[in-house]
Amino acid sequence: MKCKSLYWLAFMMCFFAIGCDNTDDGSYVEPITLYEKVNGNWGLTNLKMVDEVAKANKIEPSEENLSTYFNYEDFKIKFNVDEKNQPTSYEVTGNVPPLFAPKGFWALSSAFQSTTGAGTKIYLYSDAQKTQKTDELSLIAVPGKSKEMQFQLAHSSGGVDFVSYVFKLNAIN
């Protein structure tokens, strides 16, 4: 008899536990895009030049830190978006030699991070219609909780990269 009572009690506890589980999924919100993460002001923390030919041939040194040369410590870039988080313009400030067009318009190759591991590109344009591409940056590290971002600019000849520049940036509030 005691055993029946314990089973009955266990059954009732499970019934109430399941019956009281009211899951509230909330209301729909738009997913967070990479545009929201890239948007804003960024200050350079490190700029590295990589000799891709030397690196491929295992010749040292293949990398050079340019952060303290040519006023690059003053390098800042601002990526702007509109009220719908769509990319608009960008601008580089600081008295630095330009490695890419210092102002223009931008877009990403994808609004979301790839699930296949393919990298995201930041396309730079000279016109608001985004028909005249001036440069292409590879987004290496996506901004997130750490508020850090990295992108790479590669220069190539005949389809082969010979030098690249890796920009490491922190968000400026």
Rank of each mutant, 00 (worst) to 15 (best):
Ser62Val: 03
Pro143Phe: 01
Val29Pro: 10
Phe100Tyr: 09
Ser114Pro: 01
Glu83Val: 05
Lys4Cys: 13
Thr134Met: 07
Gly158Leu: 02
Val53Lys: 14
Leu139Ser: 06
Ala111His: 12
Lys121Glu: 06
Ser126Gln: 14
Asp51Arg: 08
Phe162Arg: 09
Lys37Glu: 01
Ser114Asn: 07
Thr33Tyr: 07
Asp161Arg: 14
Ala128Leu: 12
Asp135Leu: 04
Ser62Ala: 04
Phe70Met: 12
Glu91Pro: 05
Thr45Phe: 06
Phe151Thr: 00
Lys133Tyr: 02
Lys133Asp: 06
Met149Ser: 05
Cys3Ile: 13
Ala118Thr: 06
Leu47His: 06
Phe151Leu: 01
Glu36Asn: 09
Phe75Met: 01
Pro143Ser: 05
Glu83Ser: 12
Gly159Arg: 12
Leu9Gly: 10
Gly104Arg: 06
Leu108Val: 04
Glu52Asp: 09
Leu124Ser: 06
Thr23Gly: 11
Gly119Leu: 15
Glu63Ala: 05
Glu52Val: 06
Cys3Val: 15
Pro143Gly: 01
Lys55Phe: 02
Lys103Thr: 01
Lys121Phe: 10
Asp24Tyr: 10
Leu153Ile: 00
Tyr35Gly: 00
Tyr165Glu: 08
Val81Ala: 03
Lys130Val: 03
Val142Phe: 09
Asn57Ala: 13
Glu52Gly: 04
Met149Trp: 08
Asn57Ser: 11
Glu91Phe: 08
Val29Arg: 15
Asp127Trp: 13
Asn71Val: 00
Ala154Met: 08
Ala107Ile: 07
Gly26Gln: 04
Ala107Tyr: 09
Asn170Met: 10
Phe100Thr: 02
